[in-house]
Design a protein around this nucleic acid. Structure first.
Lengths: 197, 197
DNA sequence: TGTGTATTGTATCGCGCGATACAAATTGAC
DNA sequence: GTCAATTTGTATCGCGCGATACAATACACA
């Protein structure tokens, strides 16, 4: 009965996410989003609501996308796979695939004053997801006996999330050489040292 | 000959810094700064230049302040003191002293698109300063033989900066319990494991 | 105490922001 | 082909932003 959309909705979602990722929430204007999506303002409001709604959707899309990537890369393997995933993030290997620098969630967290509770809850949920993925990998090696009993899985997972977030924050500086990349080697070695054999 | 300033300049600088720290660069308006300093707009422009100038000054003040704190806490001691400083940052012990959550530099880094080169250079310089402080502490224990030769000081320092920045980013989320604080215990243990004895 | 200079207070300016009103265009159902 | 429903295009609106003009004020100095 009604007229159909003249554009691909998922493509537009991805374009909006990319824009927020590049410029941050406050730094992204509706005009920016029009240009990025090739849509007029009215269409954006029709399909995505207002600006806070759009940012919320971008947070959800980002969460889902990163979680899928992690699952694909670790896929029920243990610490070794986890170390590879984290090291790859620190080295910024996603950026060769055209991804913007840094992390939408870290950007949101460090500018929490400009956001609403519903946004911050998603950011917290994302951080918890990262922590949970780490715990799952650590649990696996604990069960198989590779991970010694002196390692506290809970706090170790939180520690690893700190490392990742810190590295992603540093990548925003876009220095000639990514200083966080050097830390990836230390991370691998540290995580290796946690194993018994 | 001229009339003298009707306010304390250093107090105003600190108030401006605090405001940028709380709300971020884009999130802080001239009206916010007027309220925070109890000054009128004209006085702000007279004493500090325009908004980018003010932010630049805040970055400098922040750098200098943190560096002084680190120096006072480590003061030519080695890894043990370094671990305490980093752990304290992760646990957010500064916040009990009335400091805002997070870190002005991390906030600036993760919103680099809104800043000018001169700002980003200061942020990079700050990160290098942190890295240098870590190297100095590691060097000290390397010289005394406590730090084994398998530890690469350069990349280890970068790794530690990642940990700190990630923890400070997480603190902006203001959760009931600071998740990064749990990571502090892991950091202490990890740094201890680097020592030979 | 007068005088000149810088600071302070008041009142804007122009601009871009997020958001909306409303008409024109487009599409599926009958 | 006609109608109803929805999307798209154009033209704004009100607001707060950073920034400034200009007069009034207050202070150091002669």
């Amino acid at each position: 009965m009604p007229r159909s959309l003249g554009f691909n909705l998922e493509t537009a979602r991805a374009a909006i996410l990319r824009e927020f990722w590049l410029r941050g929430y406050e730094g992204t204007s509706l005009t920016d989003l029009e240009r990025a999506t090739s849509l007029v303002r009215t269409s954006l409001y029709n399909s995505f609501g207002n600006k806070p709604d759009m940012f919320l959707d971008s947070l959800k899309l980002y969460h889902q996308s990163v979680e899928a990537q992690i699952d694909a890369a670790t896929n029920d393997r243990g610490i070794d796979a986890l170390a590879e995933v984290i090291a790859a993030m620190m080295e910024g290997s996603d950026r060769t695939a055209g991804q913007p620098a840094g992390c939408l969630m870290v950007s949101a967290a460090t500018h929490s004053a400009a956001l609403e509770d519903r946004h911050l809850q998603l950011v917290r949920g994302y951080r918890q997801m990262l922590s949970r993925k780490a715990r799952t990998a650590l649990d696996r090696d604990r069960a198989s006996g590779r991970l010694g009993p002196t390692i506290d899985i809970e706090s170790t997972a939180e520690f690893l999330v700190c490392v990742v977030w810190g590295a992603l924050a540093a990548q925003c500086l876009n220095e000639g050489t990514n200083p966080a990349a050097a830390g990836a080697a230390v991370l691998r070695k540290t995580m290796e040292s946690w194993l018994d054999n």
